[in-house]
């Protein structure tokens, strides 16, 4: 089972190491991790996807909460949250394939952010499945390079996860 958790941490050097170290030491499996600033520059927000049963998730949350630099840990249930990933993908594209690629880009409401004679860079955002799907479709043209962020996620409605 996959679980998504939001972790609010102090924006200090070494905090990422503490979290990554905790995961490896306790044999927790991270599927994805993304870090970025919050509206308050003193704190960063991490979105971590882990897999395991409820007991593992409970341990992950409790062990993270023990770290002094961790301010708050909150599980984000899949059904009650919105989640997004971003990927930029460089595909082979010549004059024969270019229009077909553009059709796929349109269907996925993705963007073309760079074009050259032999390639294009496509930017896509969406949940994991959507990004997976466009990657799958673009494979036939030849993916030359891809960079993908981890997932970021937020609970719908009024509830907030803040320091």
């Amino acid at each position: 089972m996959k679980h998504t958790i939001a972790v609010i941490v102090e924006n200090k050097s070494g905090v990422l190491t503490r979290i990554a170290g905790l995961f490896s030491r306790r044999s927790f499996n991270i599927d994805s991790l993304s870090v970025g600033a919050t509206d308050n520059p003193d704190y960063s927000r991490m979105t971590i996807t882990v897999h395991g049963d409820r007991d593992v998730l409970e341990q992950v949350i409790k062990q993270l909460s023990k770290l002094i630099n961790v301010i708050r840990v909150s599980e984000l249930g899949a059904s009650e949250s919105v989640e997004r990933e971003l990927a930029i993908i460089k595909v082979s594209a010549d004059k024969d394939s270019r229009s077909e690629i553009m059709q796929i880009v349109n269907i996925f409401r993705a963007k073309i952010i760079d074009v050259s004679h032999r390639s294009m860079i496509i930017e896509v955002t969406g949940d994991e499945e959507k990004v997976d799907a466009i990657v799958q479709l673009l494979r036939q043209f030849g993916i030359k390079e891809m960079a993908r962020t981890g997932k970021v996620s937020m609970v719908r409605g009024a509830r907030v996860v803040k320091a």
């Binding site: 070494g14 190491t17 503490r18 170290g21 905790l22 030491r25 770290l67 002094i68």
Partner: peptide, 14 residues
């Protein structure tokens, strides 16, 4: 040493 003792301290400081 802060890196080395990360998993064996309650907390550490440089």
């Amino acid at each position: 040493i802060t890196g080395i003792t990360l998993p064996i301290t309650k907390h550490n400081y440089l």
